[in-house]
Design a binder for these strands. Structure first.
Length: 137
DNA sequence: GCCAACGTTGGC
DNA sequence: GCCAACGTTGGC
């Protein structure tokens, strides 16, 4: 099983929006970046990911699970773009802020720190465990 | 709200 | 195929 991080602006698609979808889940659509798309192609059903709020909040706020592997993005006719479906698993009791992540030397290599603009990122098992711990899970 | 960093586009 | 110009993202 692999771990990932999904980034979203709360104004566009928030954790609450994701929660409201429940087990039905939702397409992670609108990604128009090749790197991010390639990571989504690597995802398998059952993979877990962090749900990260960018901009104002800049925190990991929830855990999601991949429920459908990469398929064409229904929001565009452009066949280059694909997306996966994800569903909310649970909230992170104590959201982990970007500041906390940056303050932890063990997390210095997280893609979130090194390439903050990438909207879909891989997370290592070590990073996953550390962030979960910081978040009270 | 600004600006740096990055990715994409298009002219040559 | 290179590179300048442009648009977008996201931290500060």
């Amino acid at each position: 099983m692999q771990y990932w991080l999904f980034k979203s602006e709360p104004n566009t698609w928030s954790w609450q929006n994701q929660l409201d979808k429940g087990d039905a889940g939702e397409e992670w659509d609108g990604v128009r970046n090749y790197q991010a798309r390639n990571f989504m192609r690597d995802m398998k059903v059952g993979d877990r990911g962090f749900f990260y709020h960018s901009m104002k909040e800049k925190s990991v706020v929830g855990i999601v699970e991949v429920m459908a592997e990469a398929h064409p993005d229904s929001t565009t006719d452009d066949t280059r773009w694909e997306c996966v479906d994800i569903k909310a698993v649970k909230a992170v009791p104590a959201p982990v802020s970007l500041d906390q992540i940056k303050a932890d030397p063990r997390l210095a290599d997280m893609v979130l720190v090194k390439n903050s603009r990438l909207s879909v990122q891989p997370v290592t098992a070590e990073e996953w465990a550390i962030v979960c711990q910081l978040g009270g899970l």
